[in-house]
Write a protein that binds this DNA or RNA. Structure first.
Lengths: 345, 345
DNA sequence: CTGTTAGCGCTTTCAT
DNA sequence: ATGAAAGCGCTAACAG
């Protein structure tokens, strides 16, 4: 069976002996068409299998019902959660999601933005490949001059001037560090075993804003400590993925021995650190580990890694809501919303 | 600063004193334009911030470089892996991904297909909300009459006649069951403790094809058993998510006691079963559990749940490749490719 | 190598 | 309540 030519409103119109404009109206502004005509048209449309052409419509209005989601890692569970939230709320408002996984490549990110502009995306939710201050992609200027709404999610570009939904990273760092100070490095009732490194923080990229904010939280908690014996703090850098975290922690254990405690700045980092510990025969319950982001399902096995958990679903939902507001009201001032996590022991 | 009107090829043309068609050619078929003209045009285009209008182009060609990915659960890690693969390979061929999370709702699935048709999607990768035989969505007929390529992934519609990439479910079931027969219900060297239920299979929906295939594999392995003492097999049904699995297993333990072994038909089901065990104070190492799909990262904690693992990345990649072949060659016969898993102990 | 014309499918005037 | 004409931005087909 040969594929039929696409059915257009003109075909539907011919079928009922009217013109295309009436069909268009019947389908989009039914109140402008006599009810009886309307139902004849609707019958004919569904009989012929009419499907509106989104391109023709988009070309006419120069606007689309497309929202772009740009991220470096769809497979990161935290992002998957946010995608789920965005997608669920987008379709409620009749928007479809164009998903771009940039794989951490700036040029793919630039291409994704380009594509979104060419599709006249109504809005973009952007989580760039990097949040380091020197990362200033050329597309920012273009985005500013276009009428696409932009909301950044989690990771942000320095001074780009877009709205954002971010996590309260300083608080997460402080919270996690305070937990360790109470449980491991308590000043009053216990003498903890001193090591070459008391606290090992396994971080993301050294210049990443998120990493720096979380570290600032850690330092703030440490500074509050009143004890005379200063804690030694070491930091190893990675890129928010598992493998580098594992390698850096391995090296650190080999050169400086087992630390007093480990703080992994996100889920994958902490898992990498735990892998390194295992490789060196260090059982998880002999060394305190704390994390940002929950390590999934471990509670089933009575493994409890305390963590500061953020509600990704809520963050995604807020990002989409802010985006919709800005699509409706393009002149709204940029706004940043902060999502605070909660410590789970 | 007011948002500027969109820059078109006509604007670029005016800037360099040519007509739009020449600009169009310079940008799409550079070899048809004098190199010097071309570079003047390119300069002007980038200076003015020209962005091609995908809608106009799509309207002209009545085709798009859009591929739809329709799934019931973006947040299922196995699907996230497949999305990653599809996305990565799609962008290599200059396709963008329209992502639809149907949340398990047939009407959202229908709407997703409708939207994809209206965007003239070149192809659709479809993993429906259900693979039960009585689920025969109305859009199938439309899809068949359109010229969109369709490849089903993992879940398939009965008799829809589309190509598919599926898992070797019978083999997965057989493999997992054989493992239990060797390790728990060995006939030769050990006497295993008999229970009211020897093997408890925690399944998906009773009529799901995937569930039935995996069960057939289990039965095949059991039938091969030569021992005179028949094993008792119980099955509880769920929907491939965690909570129902947990509830059904809890109920089963309460009414029939602890089984001899548990087989969870996918990752989330197995995790649910493990939660139920924990709630009843059954330690994971006192009851043999086997699963389809890997339980992530548990090896770090020396928890080893044997599982039949499928390569989701490969499945996603193959689905996209098949789709591209069919976009290029619309008359290709439907084809089904099976991905076989491997048992990891 | 570059230009003219025409049309993709739809909708916004402005009639009737 | 319905229709005619025009145009959104781009690119075949056919000139020149």
């Amino acid at each position: 069976m040969p594929k039929r030519r696409r059915v257009t409103i003109a075909d539907v119109a011919a079928r009922v002996g009217l013109t295309s404009i009436t069909v268009s109206r019947a389908l989009n502004r039914p109140e402008l068409v006599k009810p009886e005509t309307r139902s004849r048209i609707e019958a004919a449309a569904s009989e012929l299998g009419y499907v509106p052409n989104a391109f023709a419509r988009g070309l006419k209005h120069s606007e689309s019902r497309l929202i772009g989601f740009v991220t470096a890692s769809v497979d990161n569970p935290f992002y998957a959660e946010m995608i789920k939230a965005v997608s669920r709320h987008a379709k409620r408002h009749n928007y479809a999601i164009l998903l771009f996984d940039t794989d951490g490549e700036p040029w793919l990110e630039a291409k994704a933005i380009e594509t979104l502009l060419s599709y006249q995306a109504a809005g973009i939710i952007l989580s760039p490949v990097s949040d380091e201050p020197h990362y200033r992609p050329a597309y920012v200027e273009r985005l500013r001059n276009s009428d696409v709404a932009v909301v950044q999610l989690d990771r942000t570009l320095a001074d780009a001037g877009f709205s954002a939904v971010v996590l309260d990273n300083a608080w997460a760092g402080e919270c996690a560090a305070r937990h360790l100070l109470q449980r491991v490095f308590a000043e009053t009732d216990a003498v903890f075993e001193r090591r070459a490194t008391d606290l090992l923080v396994v971080a993301g990229p050294e210049r990443s804003r998120i990493t720096q904010e979380r570290l600032a939280g850690v330092r703030k908690a440490l500074a509050r400590r009143t004890s005379t014996t200063a804690l030694s703090l070491d930091i190893v850098w990675g890129d928010y993925t598992l493998a580098p975290a594992r390698e850096r922690v391995s090296e650190h254990i080999e050169s400086r021995g087992m630390p007093g405690a480990i703080f992994g700045l996100n889920q994958l980092i902490t898992l990498g650190a735990l892998q390194a510990m295992k490789a060196h025969g260090i059982a998880p319950d002999t060394l305190s580990v704390v994390s940002v982001d929950r390590l999934p399902y471990l509670d089933i096995f009575d493994i409890h890694v305390p963590c500061v958990v953020h509600d990704g679903f809520h963050a995604g939902q807020r990002a989409l809501e802010m985006l919709l507001e800005r699509i409706a009201e393009p002149e709204l001032a940029p706004q940043t919303e902060t999502v605070r996590g909660v410590l789970i022991e």
